Amino acid sequence: MNDFRVRDVDVVVIGAGQAGLSVAYHLRRAGLVPDRDFVVLDHAPRPGGAWQFRWPGLTYGKVHGMHSLPGMELTDADGSRPSSEVVGDYFAAYEDAFELRVRRPVEVAAVREGAAGRLRVETSQGVWSTRAVVNATGTWDRPFWPRYPGQETFLGRQLHTSGYRGPQEFTGRRVVVVGGGASGTQHLMEIAEVAEATTWVTRRPPVFREGPFDAEQGRAAVARVEERVREGLPPQSVVAVTGLPVNDAIRAARAEGVLDRLPMFDRITPDGVAWDDGRTVAADRILWATGFRAAIDHLSPLKLREPGGGIRMEGTRAARDERIHLVGYGPSASTIGANRAGRTAVRDIGRLLERVPAPV
């Protein structure tokens, strides 16, 4: 850390994606002043949250379910522009409009117990002492790489979707795409247009969903994720329990056989993947579309995790510590969920600040 001053604030918000900006907006509406009463710390180089790292081929017109931030609509977006640019520009304008004064790039190393019942937030830009922390770090920084026998022997290239920059590097290659989520299917369909051959592998048969996802189904999906976090289990994403929405591109890919799925292989060989029944597939590339885990290691000193591996939640609040809120975690890991969670967290933090006065 290059600044050893300890600065006092009421609330530290960690992360400036959809969830973090929603929290900052509601803190401002509650009368708290940026840089005096609360601070927003973001490790990314520029506005946009995880959106700024999306691959160029994901244009805004291909994005499903992007909800505007509270208080300022995203209007007249050019669907042909990369989503990273559209959302990055929108987030930047939002930060300016509400004078949120996001500090970046700031790496948060640890959140610890501080003096007089406060929390100590240790960062690359110094230390903040605070009465409450809102963690809005999402999952992008923790891509999940499964381990399979023989993985280290593979002579081709393995990469995670977090490092995907477009289909061009797969031109003329034999590619195995692992994972049944939306990113896996989107990448697979792009890659299939330029690759010599593609193979789609998933642990479970994919569930394709025809028609709109109604409100009752949405509530049921969120409830399943909420139940896990109430039990202290690692959360699933809401998207993981809703199935894959079918559009014209999905229909065409299924008709062409691009989305013919194989069960998960048993091992990786130097030149591909293999199953115990004797089946093999040759490959030059393996793309792991296997999702992400919550980026919460900096909270480890507070010992919030339950034996099941997750943080038990009561609403947005960590059950073991009312000073810690997590937004964009579990049931709020969607753009609309993050907006709602931001409002809920600020309401509960307001009650905490009223009940526990700041030290003189």
Rank of each mutant, 00 (worst) to 15 (best):
G31W: 12
G57A: 09
V9E: 08
P146C: 06
V133N: 00
E196Q: 14
T316L: 06
D141W: 04
S129T: 03
V273D: 13
L304A: 05
R209I: 04
I336V: 14
Y329H: 14
T153S: 15
Q236G: 14
G181H: 01
A252S: 14
A282H: 12
Q168G: 13
A221C: 12
G309F: 10
L287D: 15
G328F: 04
R46Q: 15
V39L: 13
G330C: 13
D8T: 05
Q168M: 08
T269G: 08
V356Y: 01
A333Q: 11
T202Q: 06
G61M: 05
H187R: 01
E227R: 10
V127H: 09
W128Y: 14
G31V: 04
A110R: 08
D271N: 12
Y94A: 11
D96V: 10
L259R: 00
R118C: 00
Y329N: 08
D89A: 11
N2W: 11
F213E: 14
S80W: 01
T199W: 13
T137H: 04
G114H: 05
G179K: 05
V258H: 08
G218P: 03
T269H: 11
A341F: 11
N2D: 15
P307R: 07
G79N: 12
R174K: 08
T139G: 01
A289R: 00
F292W: 14
V258A: 12
G114I: 00
R293H: 09
F208C: 13
G57H: 13
Y25P: 07
L304H: 07
V238Y: 12
D37H: 02
Q18G: 00
E152L: 09
H67T: 15
F98L: 11
P359L: 09
E152N: 09
V177K: 00
F292H: 11
R219Y: 14
R204V: 03
W145Q: 13
V87F: 10
L41M: 03
Q158N: 07
A136M: 02
G17E: 04
E107S: 13
E169K: 06
S129N: 12
D248S: 13
G71S: 11
L27F: 05
V121G: 03
G350P: 09
E122I: 12
A294Y: 01
N339V: 14
G114F: 04
L259I: 02
G163R: 14
G309Y: 08
R36N: 04
V106Q: 00
V229Y: 03
V327I: 10
A97I: 00
D76R: 06
V327D: 06
L302K: 02
F213V: 05
R228F: 02
T280R: 15
A274N: 07
D248T: 05
R174D: 15
D96Y: 02
D96A: 15
R209F: 12
V63S: 07
G181M: 08
V106W: 05
M264K: 03
F170S: 09
G114W: 02
A30E: 08
A249M: 03
P56F: 14
V40Q: 02
P270E: 11
T290I: 02
P45I: 06
L58F: 07
D214V: 07
Q125L: 06
F98T: 11
P235G: 06
P234G: 10
N2S: 15
V127I: 14
N339D: 14
G308M: 04
V63F: 06
M1G: 15
A44F: 14
V63Q: 06
